[in-house]
Structure formats: structure tokens, C-alpha cells
Simulated assay, not measured.
Amino acid sequence: MTPADLSTTVLRAVRRAVDEDALRAPVPARVRVERTRPGGRGDYASAVALQLAGPAARPAREVAEILRERMAGAPGIGRVEITGPGFLNFTLDASADADAHRALLRRVREQGLRYGHGDALAGAPLQLSHAREIRAAVTADAVRRLVRAQGAPVRISCDGADEASDPDWARLGITADAHGRPPTPLTEIRPVPAGATAGELLGRLGPDATRWGLLRPAGHDRARLGDDLLVQGEGNPLFLVRYAHSRTHALSRGAERLGFTAARDEVSAEAFEEPAASALLAVIADHPAVLAAAAHHRAPDRLARHLEAVAHAFLDFHDAASPLPAGDEKPSAAHRTRLALAEAAGTVLAGGLSLLGISAPPYL
């Protein structure tokens, strides 16, 4: 069970309690669940009962008990406990969790770079508009990629003249469907300007670092476009993400030399129980929700930060439980399962970078 699945299960319990008139409170749009902190109980916790206590005019622990009764026996949940003033604590069913992890890896493998794409925004065409300024143009291009990945047709208009005649903009992959301000309703893309031209940025940084530097900060923050974007070290998030991606390919090549491949459906449940593997599985499972939110809010910076989280989780996993056997050790089911997880991480990193318009080379 992923965090998103658990959130949906808790939300269903709230809705059921309201429908049965056991709880008189507005049903929230979503329920937040978080990993339990060290020393806490269970795998995940939620404060939803505390949030509903006021509107329901009932003690939080009483609300929590109402919800616990309606979650007992839910698929994927082994135990629900109430702690403190009314926190719900969830211990997942290990066997169901392993099945969910198998299904997740299968889904990533089958969907490839389109993993996380969906139809959350399917419907009326979206018209984006941006000024003739390089950060606005790159952001609009990334938003178009994200929104299209969620099923919406998109058109972009640039307030200025045709940038197709500018080879520097073309090198950054920027195109527009129209120029000037169309009469239809617009979504304006207006981040803080870069303070430099496309030619200046390309001359110093090249296309990939330029795009990352313009997209990584939130639109209301100034973009930091120094030469640190080119540093090959962990302090450079772009390098970290691309390095993690290249390591996943290196693992696959190493496994091929040793004569084994990643597990498909017959995977080792024990390998999923390793803490570093669980953390990596969690961020991979979060990927579709991150893509949907980044598209909905027109915020490619959310995807960039998520890719950093995936890279960190993968490198921690790689250091804690290498997919490759050491010395004379024979490849086991656990190694094949870890390799499948590493390859899934590589797929997420490559697909995410592609949506940002940034290359993901298999070698660095």
C-alpha cells in the first residue's frame, strides 16, 4: 500500500462515517498521512481526527475511534491504533505491502518513461502565455510538457515577436504556437526574470544546466544561475540527479556482465523490507501524484525537487544494499529484486528529466 493508497482509504472511512451520520463534519478534499517518526507506532500516522474534532464538536479520540472502526480489515492495513490526543497510527499488512510493491515495479517497467502520466487534466485546451523573456519561455515549455502528460491539449503564445529566428531559444527547445496576446482566456507564466539572455546562459552553462537553473527555483524566487550548476559534486542537485540515473544504468551493465537480470514478477519480499528500499519505493510511488500536482499548479520546480528526493533515496539504497553481489557471492533473488528497484528509480529519473526538457545520459 502506497501513501496515496492509504490516504484514499482513510478518506473513504471519513466519508462513510459522514454518510452513516456517525460523524457530522465536512469531508476534507484529501487526508494527509506521514511516515511515523522514530519511536512512534506503526508505519504511518494521520492527524485527521484532530482536524475533524472541532467541526464535529466531539473529542478527537472519539472521532479517531469512529474512523478506526470503519478501517478495520481494510486491504493492506494490518492494525490501526490511536495514540496521544487522537492520532491514527497504521501498521501495514506485510504480505499485502509486498504485493503492492511488486505491482508498482511492474507498472513502472510496463509504462517506462510514461510512468506517472495520466488524464487528470483531460478536457478543455489550455492556453499559456509568456513574455519574451528566457525564464518565462523555458517555464512555459516545461509546463506544457507537464500538462500534456496529464492529458490536456496546450497552446503557447509569446507576447513578443517570433522567437523561432533566435537560434539560442531554439537550442533550448522553445517554441510557441502564436505571438501576441490571443483573445481566449489565458494562463500567464510570469516567473521572476532571469536577468540574462539565452545566449549568455548557453555560453556559460549549456542547455541542460540552463534549463535546470531556470526551473528548479519556484517561480516567485530568483533563479541562481552561477557556475556551481556545472560542478560535478553532490552539492549540485542537477549533477546528483543525473549521476543517480547513470548509476542505475551502470548497475544494469554490471549485472549483465555477471549473467543476471532484474527480477520481474518473482521478487524477494525480504528485499522490500530493508529500510533504504522502503524509502526508495515510497518516492517512486509518489511520482504520479507529484506529476499531477506540478501540472495542476503550473510548477515544474515541484518535479525538480522530487527528482532530487528520488536521487537521494536511490543513492542511500545503493550504499545500504547493493544490487550487485560482492566478491564470489552468487546473485540471489534479493539481488535481482534490488536491481529491479534500481532500474525503476532510473526510469523515474529519466522520465522526470525529460518532462523538464533535460537530457539523462546513461554515462557521466
Rank of each mutant, 00 (worst) to 15 (best):
A223V: 11
G254H: 12
D168M: 09
E81F: 00
V63A: 02
P191M: 09
V138K: 00
A98H: 05
R106P: 00
G84L: 11
S322M: 06
E266R: 14
Y115H: 09
D21Y: 04
H101W: 14
S46W: 05
A321M: 06
G233K: 13
A120H: 04
R70I: 12
N89A: 11
V267F: 04
A293S: 14
L230T: 09
A74I: 13
R211F: 08
R155Q: 07
A56R: 06
F87I: 13
A255K: 00
Q51D: 14
A13K: 00
L303Q: 10
L251M: 13
M71L: 15
A49H: 03
R242N: 06
E65M: 08
S332Y: 02
D97W: 11
A22D: 15
A47T: 15
P85R: 09
P183N: 06
V143E: 01
V138C: 01
G213C: 11
I156P: 01
R181N: 10
A140P: 01
D319T: 15
R171T: 12
V310F: 03
G160Y: 03
R145E: 06
Q51M: 13
I77N: 02
A269D: 15
Y44C: 12
D208A: 13
I156L: 13
S7V: 09
S268R: 00
A176T: 12
A334D: 15
P361W: 07
I189P: 02
R222G: 10
S165H: 12
A289D: 14
R145P: 08
L92F: 03
A98E: 10
A122K: 05
P26Y: 05
A255Q: 01
T8G: 04
A29P: 01
D93C: 12
I77T: 08
S278T: 14
L307F: 03
G351F: 02
H287P: 09
L113G: 02
A209W: 05
G233Y: 09
L353Q: 09
G226T: 08
G346Y: 09
A250L: 14
F260V: 03
R15M: 12
A277N: 08
V143D: 02
H287A: 11
S129G: 10
D5T: 10
L201R: 02
G40W: 08
Y115G: 05
F90Q: 07
P185D: 14
L291F: 10
P55F: 06
D5N: 03
A276Q: 09
A289C: 03
I284R: 04
A64D: 00
L303G: 00
V267W: 00
F317D: 12
A299S: 13
P59Y: 06
S278R: 15
G199L: 07
A196S: 13
A47C: 07
R302H: 08
A100P: 05
D5V: 09
D208N: 13
T210D: 12
A29L: 13
L240R: 13
L126Q: 07
R242T: 11
A96V: 04
H117I: 02
D43H: 11
S332A: 11
E308K: 08
A136H: 02
A176G: 09
V310C: 06
A304N: 05
L6W: 07
W169P: 00
F272D: 10
S354V: 07
A22V: 05
I189F: 07
E34H: 13
L126T: 10
V143N: 01
H287F: 14
A276I: 07
W212D: 12
V348Q: 05
V310D: 04
D301F: 15
R15A: 15
F272Q: 03
L214I: 11
G199Q: 08
T8K: 11
R135F: 02
